[in-house]
Design a protein around this nucleic acid. Structure first.
Length: 601
RNA sequence: GGGCCCGUAGCGCAGCCUGGAUAGCGCGGCAUCCUCCUAAGAUGUAGGCCGUGGGUUCAAAUCCCACCGGGCCCGCCA
C-alpha cells in the first residue's frame, strides 16, 4: 500500500519534472519528524543536473504536483518536498493489512534455500556462542521463508571428529553413568578427557585409535559412536526446542562419507578446478591453486585432499556444499529423528526413506567469521567448476562470537560451564517469574515466564548485528525492560487485551480523521513488507527486531495517549481496526524474530 | 607480509550498503505521571570534535586513502 502510494507520488513528480519515474521513486524516503510522511529529494537530483539551487527547484516544482487522493498535503521545506498522506490512505492501508492477515508482507515464490546452522560438535551442551549462531540461523530461516523462499534448515553433525572419539574414549573408560541432561554430562566428561590427553600419551594414542576405527567404519565402534552422538544430539535439541529453534534435517558426516564422498572427490578430481601436486611440500595432495585471486596469501595453495587420500575439512565441506546445490547424484536415506514442538518432524540421515532435501537455489551458511577464508575457497572452487550462478548465491553469513568479559567460551577447557544455553534460559525464566505481579496461578506464571524468558534472550541475541562481537553480561542479555524482548511482548499483550474486551473489530470508517499517533502507527505498519524484503535479501534479521521495537514504541505512545474502548463515535471503530492490525503485524514481526507471543503478561 | 571485522553519550547498541533537514534508542542519573484498555509502561531533562588525519562532494557518522586501538584469519586441525 505504501509502495503504491510512493509509486503514485513518483508518477506525479515524473510528470511535472525531467525525472524518470524510477528516479523519482528512489528520491522518496520516510520524512523525518514533523515534516509530513514521505519526503522527496528530487530537487537535489534536478539541481545537480540543471546547476540550480535545490531549494528554488523544490519551490517551483511542488505547486505543480497533482499526486493522488492518498496525498492530502504537499509542502516545501528548503530543498525537500514533503507529502502528507490523507486519512483516506490510512483507512485503505488498515483495510489491506487486516485483509492480508498472516500473509501480510509475504514475498513472491523464490525457489529453495538451504540454511545451515549451528553445527555444534555432538559431545557437549550448547553454550551462549552456539546459541547466537542458532538464533541467527533460525531467524534467517524464518525471514527467508516469509520472503517467499522454500527454506530447509539443515544441521551438520560432525560425528567423525576427534572430539567424538575423545568422548567415546571417556564413555568407555571413565564410566558411563550419565546423570542430569546428557549433553551436559558428556561435555564435562569431554573436558576431563581433553585434560588427560594433554598429559597422558596413552590416552591420546587410544583416542586416536578410536578415531581411526570410527573413520574406517569399524562396525562395533561406529555403532557405539553413532549411538553416543545421537543421544547427545537429542539432548542438545531439547535446548533447540526450548528456544523455538527448528530444523528440517540433520546430516551426519558419517553418512556424507558413505553416500556422496567418493562421487564428490571424483567430480573434483576430474575437473580442472583442482590438481594433483607431483612434487614439493604438497606432493601427493589435490590442491586448489589460489594464486590468481588470493595473491598475498602466505601459501596460495589450499589442500583439499591429503596425500593419504582423505579430505581436509574444507574438502569435505566443499563436497557437502556441492550436494546442497544439487551437483551430486548421491541421495541420503532419512529417518524420522525428533518430533518438534512446531509439529514438524526433524529428519536425520542414516535411515531408509528418500526425501527431497537438497538441490537448493541458494545456500546460506551461518558460520563464525573465522571461517571467511575457507568459505571463500569453496566459492572460488564453485566458480572454477563453472557454477557461477551458484557461487553468487553461496552465502557465508559470518558472525562474531560471544565472549565472556574475561575470557572466551571454550568447549575443551570447559569455560562454558555456567553459560550453557540451558542455564541462560533457566536464569532468564527465573528472573521473569520474579517480576510477575498480577494474580496468576502457578501454572500461568510458569507459562508467562517461559515466553518472557525465552523472548528476552532471543531478542537480545538477535538485535546486535552479526559482525559485532557480543560480550556476554547477564544484566544485558536478560534485560526485561526498555529495548528488550519483553517490551515487545508487553505491547503485544496490551493490544490483545483490548481486542479481547472489545469483541469484533470492524474496519475503520472511511470518513474518520486519523490523529498524529494513529497515523504514525499505520505508516510504520505499512513499512513491514519492505522490511521483510530487505531483511531477507541482506540476511539481517536484526532489521526486523529493530522494526518490532520501533513499532511497539509507537504503539505504546499511542496507547498512553488515546483510549480505545471508551473512545467516542468513529474513533472507537478506527482504533480497534488499528489495534487489530498492530496485533497482527507485530505478531508476524515477532514470529520472524522468533520472539514468542505470550498469551498474557 | 597480506586479508576481513569492530571503534557512535559513563555503559550496551541502531544508523553506514543506497551521502542530505535538529545523529536515534536502551541502561544508568535527575524530575514528573498509576480511581482510567495491567507502570515489564508514558513524559521531560542532562549527557556526543560519530577513533584520528587527509580527500571526494553544494553536502560526509555514511564514499575513498592513510594511520591508531581491539578482535579474527592466511594448517596434509576441525
Amino acid at each position: 500500500m505504501l509502495f503504491r502510494a510512493k509509486k503514485e507520488i513518483a508518477k506525479a513528480i515524473s510528470r511535472a519534472s525531467a525525472l524518470a519515474e524510477g528516479e523519482a521513486f528512489s528520491s522518496l524516503e520516510p520524512a523525518k519528524g514533523g515534516f509530513g510522511d514521505i519526503a522527496s529529494k528530487a530537487a537535489f537530483l534536478l539541481a545537480s543536473r540543471e546547476k540550480k539551487n535545490p531549494a528554488q527547484i523544490a519551490a517551483e516544482l511542488a505547486p505543480r504536483l497533482k499526486p493522488h487522493e492518498w496525498v492530502e498535503k504537499t509542502e516545501v521545506a528548503g530543498p525537500y518536498i514533503n507529502f502528507t498522506l490523507s486519512s483516506r490512505f490510512y483507512s485503505d492501508a488498515l483495510r489491506e493489512i487486516l485483509k492480508k492477515g498472516k500473509n501480510y508482507g509475504k514475498g513472491n515464490k523464490k525457489g529453495k534455500a538451504i540454511v545451515e546452522f549451528p553445527s555444534v560438535n555432538p559431545n557437549k551442551p550448547w553454550h551462549a556462542g552456539h546459541l547466537r549462531n542458532a538464533i541467527l540461523g533460525d531467524s534467517v530461516s524464518r525471514v527467508l521463508s516469509h520472503a517467499g523462499w522454500n527454506v530447509e534448515s539443515i544441521d551438520y553433525i560432525d560425528d567423525l571428529g576427534l572430539q567424538v572419539a575423545q568422548s567415546l574414549w571417556g564413555h568407555m573408560n571413565l564410566g558411563n553413568r550419565p546423570s542430569g541432561k546428557f549433553d551436559h554430562w558428556l561435555g564435562m566428561q569431554y573436558v576431563e578427557v581433553a585434560k588427560r590427553m594433554e598429559t597422558d600419551a596413552k590416552v591420546q594414542a587410544e583416542a586416536r585409535a578410536l578415531l581411526k576405527k570410527i573413520e574406517e567404519g569399524d562396525p562395533e565402534i561406529s555403532k557405539k559412536a553413532r549411538e553416543l552422538t545421537e543421544r547427545c544430539v537429542s539432548a542438545q535439541y531439547e535446548t533447540d526446542f526450548a528456544y523455538s529453534i527448528f530444523h528440517t534435517a540433520l546430516i551426519f558426516e558419517s553418512d556424507i562419507v558413505r553416500t556422496i564422498f567418493q562421487e564428490g572427490i571424483g567430480l573434483l578430481k576430474s575437473s580442472n578446478a583442482i590438481i594433483l601436486e607431483k612434487e614439493g611440500k604438497n606432493a601427493g595432495c589435490w590442491v586448489v591453486k589460489l594464486g590468481e585471486k588470493f595473491q598475498k596469501l602466505q601459501d596460495p595453495d589450499k589442500i583439499l585432499v591429503r596425500s593419504d587420500g582423505t579430505a581436509t575439512y574444507t574438502g569435505k565441506d566443499l563436497i557437502f556444499q556441492l550436494w546442497k546445490l544439487g551437483k551430486l547424484k548421491g541421495r541420503f536415506g532419512y529417518k524420522p529423528f525428533l518430533k518438534q514442538p512446531n509439529g514438524k518432524t526433524a529428519f536425520a540421515t542414516g535411515g531408509k526413506n528418500p526425501k527431497p532435501f537438497g538441490n537448493a537455489d541458494m545456500v546460506v551458511n551461518v558460520i563464525g567469521s573465522e571461517q571467511i577464508y575457507p568459505q571463500e575457497v569453496i566459492r572460488e572452487v564453485l566458480l572454477r567448476l563453472g557454477h557461477a550462478k551458484e557461487a553468487g548465491r553461496y552465502i557465508h553469513l559470518a558472525h562474531e562470537h560471544v565472549v565472556l568479559p574475561e575470557e572466551k567460551l571454550s568447549g575443551r577447557s570447559g569455560t562454558w560451564k555456567g553459560f550453557t544455553a540451558d542455564e541462560l534460559l533457566e536464569e532468564s525464566v527465573r528472573r521473569a517469574k520474579e517480576k510477575i505481579s498480577g494474580e496468576f496461578t502457578e501454572d500461568e506464571k510458569e507459562k508467562i515466564a517461559r515466553a518472557v524468558g525465552e523472548g528476552a534472550i532471543r531478542y537480545s541475541f538477535i538485535r546486535t548485528t552479526p559482525e559485532k562481537k557480543l560480550v556476554f553480561k547477564w544484566e544485558e542479555a536478560l534485560s526485561l525492560e526498555g529495548n528488550s524482548g519483553p517490551y515487545l511482548q508487553y505491547a503485544y499483550v496490551r493490544a490483545r487485551k483490548i481486542l479481547e474486551k472489545a469483541g469484533r473489530a470492524k474496519a475503520a470508517p472511511a470518513s474518520y480523521q486519523f490523529n498524529a499517533e494513529e497515523r504514525k502507527l499505520v505508516l510504520e505498519m505499512c513499512m513491514f513488507p519492505e522490511l521483510v524484503e530487505k531483511a531477507a535479501s541482506s540476511f539481517r534479521p536484526h532489521l526486523l527486531s529493530e522494526y518490532s521495537y520501533s513499532l511497539s514504541e509507537t504503539f505504546s505512545k499511542f496507547y498512553s495517549m488515546h483510549h480505545v474502548l471508551n473512545a467516542e463515535g468513529g474513533a472507537r471503530g478506527a482504533r480497534l481496526a488499528l489495534v487489530k492490525s498492530f496485533e497482527q503485524v507485530l505478531g508476524l514481526s515477532l514470529s520472524l524474530c522468533g520472539v514468542p507471543l505470550p498469551g498474557r503478561m
